[in-house]
Amino acid sequence: MQFKKYFLVVCSFASFLGCRSISVNKSAMHTATTTPVALGVIGIHENHMLNTDFQVTTIPTYKKGIRVGITPTTFDKTTFKAYKNSSPNNPQQITYIDSVDTKPQFLKIELIDWVSIISELEQGYNQQTIEYLKRQQDAEMISSVSMSVSPQIIKEIQSAEAVFLVNKNYKQYELSLVTDGKSHKTIDFSDTTIFGYRLSYFCWGENDKRRVSLFDIVDENDNCPKDTYKNAEKAKEKINYLKL
Rank of each mutant, 00 (worst) to 15 (best):
P104S: 08
T129D: 07
D138G: 07
V178F: 15
A162D: 12
K134P: 00
I94Y: 05
N85C: 08
N126Y: 03
S146F: 09
M141Q: 09
M147R: 06
I118E: 01
E174A: 12
V163G: 07
E131T: 03
Q123R: 10
V149W: 00
K108D: 14
K103E: 00
S150H: 02
K134R: 10
D113F: 03
V166P: 11
P88A: 12
L175N: 11
I153H: 01
S148D: 08
T179K: 14
A139W: 01
N89L: 13
E140L: 06
Q127K: 07
T95P: 00
T179R: 14
L111A: 05
I97T: 09
L111F: 04
E140H: 06
K182C: 08
E140Q: 15
S176H: 09
Q92R: 15
S99M: 07
K155C: 01
W114V: 06
E122T: 02
S148T: 08
K182P: 01
I153T: 08
E156L: 07
T95M: 07
I94N: 04
H184D: 09
V145D: 04
I109N: 05
S143T: 09
Q92H: 10
K171R: 15
Q92S: 10
Q152S: 01
E156F: 00
N126C: 04
Y125A: 04
N90I: 13
A162Y: 12
D98G: 13
N167A: 14
Q92D: 11
Y96N: 06
D180C: 09
Q152Y: 06
D101I: 13
A160E: 07
T129S: 05
E110T: 11
Q128L: 12
Q136L: 03
K134D: 04
N167R: 12
I97W: 07
S87R: 14
L177Q: 13
A139D: 01
V100E: 15
V115E: 08
Q136N: 11
Q158F: 03
K103I: 08
N169I: 15
I112F: 05
L177P: 06
Q137R: 08
V178Y: 12
E161M: 05
D113R: 06
Q172H: 13
P104E: 03
S146Q: 09
P151F: 02
N85A: 14
Y96K: 11
P151I: 02
K182L: 14
Q93K: 15
E110Q: 10
P104F: 10
E122R: 02
K168I: 11
W114T: 09
Q158L: 06
I117H: 01
S146P: 00
N126H: 06
V178C: 12
N90Y: 11
I153R: 03
S99G: 04
E120S: 11
K171A: 15
N90L: 13
